[in-house]
Each structure stands twice: as C-alpha cells, then as structure tokens.
Amino acid sequence: MRGQGGANAGHTVIVEDKKYVLHLFPSGILWPGKQNIISNGVVLDPISLCEEITTLEGQGIVINPEKLLISDRAHLVLPLHRELDAAREAKLGDKKIGTTKRGIGPAYADKANRQGIRLADAIRPEKLRELLEIRVPEANATLEPLGLETFTVDGIIDAITPALERLRPHIADIIPVVHKAWKAKETILFEGAQGTFLDIDFGTYPFVTSSNTTSGGCTTGTGLPPLAIEAVVGVCKAYTTRVGSGPFPTDNEDLANYLHGLGREFGATTGRARSCGWLDTVLLRYSCMVNGVTGLAITCLDGLDERDTIQICTHYEIDGEKHEFPPADRDAWDRIVPVYETLPGWKEDTTSCNTWGDLPENAKAYLTRLSELSGAPISHVGIGPGRDQTILVEQSAG
C-alpha cells in the first residue's frame, strides 16, 4: 500500500536482474499474487500513472484490478497543478524549495483548501466539469500575470479523460478491502515515498514535501488504524543524501564526487545528482523517535567499501551549545557545526556477504555504532541492489 506522496517519488527496484523504476506504484506490483493499493493519501496524476502502467506492461508485468486498486478518495494532480508548481518556484527565486515540479504541492494545497478533485468525482463527467469551472479560472489568475501557460476546462477534460477511463476498473472504496485483510491477519506492507526530513511536520521546513512521510502518515493515508502497525522498518543509507534545496549539515563534496564516480546517487525521478555526506545520526536519532522504528535497514553499505576512514556526525553545535536533535528554528540550520566521530574503514568488498558474520569486523563495528547512536537495532543490511544482497541480521547473527 502507498499512503502518501505522488509521482515525485522514485523507487528503483531490481528483480531477477531486471531494473524497474516506480513512481506511483507500490513495489509489490512486481511480484505475482500481491494485491497492490494506491490509497487515499496519495495525490495521483492519472496521465503519469497510465504512462507507468504502459511501461510496466512493456516489461512483462500484468496489471489488472485483481492486482491494483486505487482509492476513490485519492486526489487528482491536474496539468494546472504542474504549472502552479513552476510558478511558485519561479517566484521564490534563490529561495526555491527544489521541488520536482510535478504538481504535488499545489495538489495537496487544493486538498487542504477543500477545492481538490477526488477520483470519485472525476469519473463523473458532469461533476468533473462543475469542479473545474470553479478551479481553472482561479489557477489562470495566478499563471497569466507570470506569462505561464493557462488552461481551459475543455482542455483539461480532454487531457485526462482517456487516462481516467483506463483507470476506471481499478477505482474502488479500498477501506473495506484493507480492513477485511487486516481482520484476516493477512500481511500488509505500507510503503513510504520520501524520507522523514521531507515530512511536512517533522522535516526541514519549509524545504519539505507536502505530505506526512513518517509512519503516522501510513494510517491517515490508508484508512487503517494506528494499532494495525506492528513493526516499522526505517530504511537508511550508510551515508546521508539530499536532492533539491534545503539544509544539509554533513554535506561533503569529496564523498559526493566519490559516489557519483561510482555511478551512484542520481535521482530516479529527476536524474539530478544528489548531494552526499557522512551519516548524520542527529537526523537518524530523531527519525527513529518520530517513526517508532523497530528495526533499521541500512542500505548501500558497499558504497563505503573503499574508504580509509568513515565519519559519523554524533551531534550538532549551535552557538556553542550541544544539540542531539535537529532544530525547529529554520535559521539555526545555517549555524550548525556538525561534530564527528571517526571510525576506520574496512577496505574490503562486502557485495558477496551473505550473513552478518561475513561482514568485515570494521563494517560490523560501524553498524553497531550507528545502532547505539540512533537507539534502534539493525534489522537489515544492504550490500548491493540485488534482492539476494540484503542481509537479515537477526537470522544471520542468531
């Protein structure tokens, strides 16, 4: 189940040596026998979703209503939202957020302003027209003075109707479906779309996305209650990355150049090179708290295989004071001095390790230290993109 975000997310998944790039789909779409759901918390561009369906079908993935359901309460991302996204970034100038300009923020703004269009309304032609006749003139009043593209009601209807018709068989009230599965004790996997520090409440505001990317968003975004969540896996790279604008205390150009030279850390959605830095356990510690992380999945450990030494940010100094948690004051981010602890590298190839015991001693020491600093146990270690390159720590260590 996907419960928040939109097509601004990009997940690269490797299955049997085949590469798939997903934006709106949960990754379970790649496996047979799995019911996939795009839930009410997602903002959905119907054109983009149909393009993604076409791409996956071209790769041999069968997509039918038995495999994919879409909540009739999901809000639409319209062509005008993309243009409003560009307008906002243009007005912000050098203070821009660094969005993917896919209309996500404006779509969520319409949702909060109670003028969004949900799928249940969009598949009723008369209702769709009625709602667009209210929204389109308002959008044009913003776009026209900036010299940006304006829209007509008929133009938007013509653009999205073929996609809506293609999606119609998949649109349903998902709440009874997921509650039936939960009551039957079936396994349900919630898949988040962005990192904790892009969360609208807990992230590096205002350089955030427009939804709750933390574990709490899984419940409000899907209609399942909080007590349905039995475990929270916090997925974290062995170093820190950021794409787009916003504060990044541990940003390190040398490490970024090294990782980019390996062909790593380019955005799956935008292709933009990500900024890279040493692992920031101030952010990690806070993430584990607000998400209730029960196990950390540390990925991309192999990206550090050739480093002589590895640094870990243990806390911040702001105006001479020690801080173990990130500040809410947006100006304080400019005054952060990260404090590092240096550990020896392992200088060994980890990509063929099968168990925790196979990992180099210095790699295990690094992971153990991350666990101590974050306050959460390590549950998985990723040492490559392949499905067989994920070590299940409890099984292999016990």
Rank of each mutant, 00 (worst) to 15 (best):
G5L: 07
K18N: 11
P26M: 03
Q35T: 08
L49C: 10
C50N: 08
I53L: 01
Q59N: 07
I61S: 02
V62G: 00
V62P: 01
K67S: 13
L69P: 01
L76M: 12
L78G: 05
H81C: 09
E83D: 10
E89R: 08
T100C: 06
A107N: 08
Y108S: 00
A109G: 05
Q115W: 06
G116E: 06
I117E: 04
V136M: 13
V136I: 15
P137T: 07
E149I: 04
V153R: 03
V153G: 01
G155D: 10
G155S: 00
G155P: 06
I160L: 00
I160V: 12
A163C: 12
H179M: 13
K180T: 15
E191S: 10
E191N: 08
I200P: 10
D201E: 13
D201S: 05
G203S: 15
T204C: 07
F207L: 15
V208E: 05
N212M: 12
G217S: 13
V232K: 04
V235G: 00
G263L: 13
R264T: 00
F266I: 00
V282P: 09
Y286T: 09
C288V: 10
T294M: 04
L296N: 06
D302N: 09
T309L: 09
E317K: 15
P326T: 14
P327W: 13
A328Y: 05
V337L: 09
T350K: 05
T351F: 05
S352K: 14
N354G: 14
L359C: 10
A363F: 08
K364V: 06
S379E: 09
I383H: 04
T390Q: 10
V393K: 06
